[in-house]
Amino acid sequence: MTRINYQFYVVVVGCGKIGLELATRLSSIGFNVTLIDKNPESFEKLPEDYGGFTVIGDATEREILERAKAGKADLLIVTTEDDATNYFVSVVGAKIFGIPNIISLVNNRENIPLFERTGIKVISPVSLAIESFEHSILEGVEQVAGGIK
């Protein structure tokens, strides 16, 4: 893994188990991370060593994505437990904010083709164990890092 040195900006939507774990890992390997969640209490579970920003709000609203400076993001990772929300935020991130790389959690396996046909990289907790899930994120992240350099 190349050292990233905070040059890459990632917006993570949803501070559930997966979003929280991802944001923490990404920040520890040198990503500049902003984590968005509707519920301020969900940030209380963030570990001591998380170094990054938090934004409280509904990511399906443009204002919240703007507040998170989504337009500057190199990567958007959407991890809520509602697929309609994940899809909507992913598409707005790609088409409106022009974020070049989108990775989304898809909770219901039958929705995967829709995400993929829209050009969204999919991660699915059902079909992937959590280890390989992280692996697929890091792979995506390396592609991003490689693509920007």
Partner: peptide, 16 residues
């Protein structure tokens, strides 16, 4: 009453 839901269903019926 949710745009994200309407959008999701719209895209489902378009794609599938």
């Amino acid at each position: 009453e949710r745009d994200r839901k309407n959008f999701f269903i719209a895209r489902l019926v378009q794609e599938y």
